[in-house]
Amino acid sequence: MSTDVLDEELRDCFQELSNVAVGRAADLLARLLNNFVIMPIPVVNLLERAELSMALSAIADASSVSAVCQGFTGSKIAGEALLIFNDASFQDMAELTQFKGEITEQIELELLMDIANILIGACLKGLAEQIDVSFSQGQPYLLGQHINIEELLNRNGSTWQRLLTIELPYKLEGREVNCDLLLLFTEDSLAILRNKMSYLLE
């Protein structure tokens, strides 16, 4: 079976694994913020880089976003986690974390990094446990604050031409907090992921 094609069976399998991982991350976030987290079903695709630009534009309809990126690798699987945060979310985030005072860019950055650590860490751990790998995570870094999607993509220096993307949207009930977590796997990782999930495909 060709490794550069994401057939329906494999897509469903990724979706099932992602659903479990995203549920764990949402549970952690809900406990931390004492607020119900709404989670749509993860969206799994195999995208060319140009298509990723269009996909990001579609999911981040806000004119201004902030984003954090974190690389990960393990068992010859490599990728990046990209957390895109709607800038309208910061006031509500500050309230939910009991922050009092002026919300400066530094405070926004701390909030963004806190959420990124929770969501990215929990999602990767949830996926890794299900396919029996251990991911080593790089240092998270800021791609930008208060920028548009086009700028965001230009700042992400990845040279990958085709990516397996898992889009995990999060929204807090009754709040203006919404963000998108994208797990981006290199094309070379697809064959290994397929092999790791073979027990689910039988």
Rank of each mutant, 00 (worst) to 15 (best):
F99G: 04
K196R: 13
V44C: 08
S136Q: 15
S64T: 09
D87Q: 07
A21I: 03
P40I: 01
V22E: 08
D188V: 04
L184Y: 04
S158M: 11
L28I: 12
A55K: 07
S75G: 02
G157T: 15
L190K: 03
L6W: 00
R31L: 14
M39L: 14
T3H: 12
M39G: 07
I131S: 09
I59V: 15
W160S: 14
L111K: 01
A21F: 03
N35E: 04
S53V: 13
L112I: 06
V20I: 14
K171N: 13
R31N: 12
F135V: 08
S66P: 04
L168Y: 08
E173H: 15
E48V: 02
A191D: 04
S134G: 06
Q130I: 10
D188L: 10
H146A: 15
I192C: 05
I149R: 14
S63H: 11
G126N: 10
Q70W: 06
E105A: 14
G126F: 09
N195S: 14
V177L: 07
E110T: 04
F36N: 10
L17G: 03
S18K: 02
L10P: 00
L83C: 07
K125H: 13
G74C: 00
N148V: 07
E150G: 09
E80V: 07
E80L: 08
L29H: 06
A50K: 10
N34S: 13
D4C: 05
L193R: 05
A58V: 09
S66A: 01
R162F: 11
T104H: 02
E16N: 12
A67Y: 07
T97C: 07
I84T: 07
G138I: 06
F36L: 12
I166D: 05
I120K: 08
L119D: 10
D87I: 04
K76F: 09
I41Q: 08
A116R: 02
Q161P: 02
S198V: 10
Q106W: 05
A67T: 08
L182A: 00
S2I: 08
L96Y: 00
L163I: 03
D132H: 09
Q98N: 09
L142V: 12
V43K: 13
R24C: 00
